[in-house]
Simulated assay, not measured.
Amino acid sequence: MVMKKTTVMVDEEDLALLKQAAAREGRSESEYLREAFHLVAQRARRWSEDWDIPVVDFGRPISAEEVHQTVTDVISERHTRPARE
């Protein structure tokens, strides 16, 4: 990966929080900033072609409560299941 140096102005409080996180987690500030740039670049990206996203049809409307309950069940199941070896 080719790296390009740049200068940015950031909020003082944000920079202080970044410095604390870097020190706490043993990562460089630059690593955090590269990650942030990457996330913003991906979020702002636009594709010229349509996405081929499959449509899931359950034959009836699915409520938000059903989705919430399913997610809750899966999370609960993962926390109670023994770890794989």
Rank of each mutant, 00 (worst) to 15 (best):
E29P: 02
E25Y: 12
M3I: 01
Q42K: 11
K4M: 10
V74K: 06
T6F: 12
V74P: 02
A23S: 13
A83L: 13
V56S: 01
E66M: 12
I62H: 02
K19H: 09
D57L: 05
H79I: 09
S28K: 11
E77I: 02
V2T: 10
M1E: 06
R45I: 00
W51G: 09
K19S: 07
E31F: 13
T70Q: 10
G59I: 04
M3T: 11
S28F: 04
S28Y: 01
E29V: 15
L39Q: 13
V8S: 07
A36V: 11
T72C: 03
R27N: 00
E77D: 12
A23T: 09
S30G: 14
G59K: 01
E12Q: 13
A36S: 10
T72M: 12
R46T: 10
D73T: 12
A64L: 12
E77L: 13
W51P: 00
R84P: 03
L33S: 04
M9N: 13
A41D: 06
A36K: 08
E66P: 05
I53P: 01
D11P: 03
G26E: 02
R43D: 02
L39H: 10
E49R: 13
T72H: 12
R45L: 06
I53S: 04
L17R: 15
L18N: 01
E49I: 05
D14W: 09
R45H: 08
P82E: 06
R24C: 00
V40M: 06
A21S: 09
E85W: 00
M3E: 09
S48C: 00
R24F: 05
T7E: 14
A44P: 00
P82A: 02
A83I: 07
S63G: 14
K4G: 01
V55H: 05
I62E: 08
E49Y: 06
L39M: 12
E35D: 08
E77Q: 11
L17N: 12
A44D: 04
I75Y: 07
E85Y: 00
A83V: 11
E49D: 13
V55A: 07
E25C: 06
W47I: 07
I62G: 05
P61G: 01
